[in-house]
Amino acid sequence: MSRRATVLSIVILAIVGFAAAAYFYQATLEKPVPQATPQTASNLVRFHSPTFGPADAPVTLVEFFDPSCESCRAFYPIVKDMMAKNPGSIRLVLRYVLLHAGSEQAVRLLEASRKQGVFPQVLEAVLAAQPAWHDDPQVVKAWEAAEAAGLDVKQAREDIKSGKIDAVLAQDAADAKAVGVSGTPTFFVNGKPLPEFGAQPLYDLIKSEIAQAK
């Protein structure tokens, strides 16, 4: 089954679970604790990345993610549901990949929201509004959704010019290339790539890693 067909098959579940997912999605900004092998850990987990879940979780889930990606939006509630069903066992690390016309603007918006301490709610709002801004290089509707979620847009417009964000984008792009990311979302579970793309393979690999940690 193709990646597109797989995503279409889960999109209904994604829509149903989207609103409830935020309840379980608690962000932290601590330095991630790599679970991957030494050869790949440095390319998968960086101190600057948004992270969700406890630092000492037995499973580190790295997602190479594009906020403009429809598949990433579809997987949003699925990943949150997996975290909710395995409390304390999964730490999610987000890495950015820019594949669409508005991707960089959207990522800069998200990084500005981190500075204001409103990243989780802005991320959810931006993803929920994605169909309205997906093909817009200026992501106007994403900005509107972020503002409604609590972002100070005037300050964020200044913060997106930060050299720190430039460095984040450059490092994530280099790491995505180094580990062979060719599309989004791409997942690594404790440094291991999925055997095939899909929600079930992701769930199975996570459960296997949790079981091994017990």
Rank of each mutant, 00 (worst) to 15 (best):
V59Y: 08
V59E: 02
V59R: 06
T60Y: 05
V62T: 11
E63G: 10
F64P: 06
S68F: 06
S68R: 14
S68K: 13
E70Y: 07
E70A: 12
C72E: 10
R73Y: 02
A74L: 01
A74R: 03
F75E: 08
P77W: 06
I78D: 08
I78T: 08
K80E: 08
D81Y: 14
M82Y: 04
M82E: 08
M83Y: 00
A84F: 07
A84S: 13
K85R: 15
K85A: 11
N86M: 03
N86F: 12
G88H: 08
S89L: 14
S89G: 01
R91N: 01
R91E: 04
R91H: 00
R91P: 05
R91L: 00
R91S: 01
Y96N: 14
Y96V: 04
Y96E: 13
Y96R: 07
H100G: 10
H100E: 09
A101I: 14
G102W: 02
G102A: 11
G102H: 06
S103D: 05
S103F: 03
S103R: 06
E104S: 08
E104F: 02
Q105E: 14
A106S: 15
A106M: 07
A106C: 12
V107H: 05
R108F: 01
R108D: 04
L109K: 09
L109G: 01
L109S: 06
L110K: 09
L110V: 04
S113W: 00
S113I: 01
R114F: 03
G117E: 08
G117D: 13
G117H: 03
P120H: 05
Q121F: 00
Q121S: 09
V122G: 02
E124D: 13
E124C: 02
A125H: 03
A125W: 00
A125N: 04
V126E: 03
A128R: 14
A128W: 13
A129Q: 13
A129Y: 05
P131A: 11
P131E: 02
P131H: 00
A132S: 15
W133L: 07
D135V: 11
V139Y: 02
V139D: 08
E144K: 08
A145S: 12
A146Y: 02
A146R: 07
A146I: 08
A146P: 07
A146W: 00
E147G: 13
E147I: 08
E147N: 14
G150E: 12
L151N: 10
L151G: 10
V153C: 00
K154Q: 14
Q155K: 14
R157N: 04
R157K: 11
R157S: 10
K161G: 10
G163I: 12
D166G: 09
A167M: 14
A167K: 15
V168R: 10
Q171W: 03
Q171K: 15
A174N: 11
A174T: 03
A174G: 11
A174S: 15
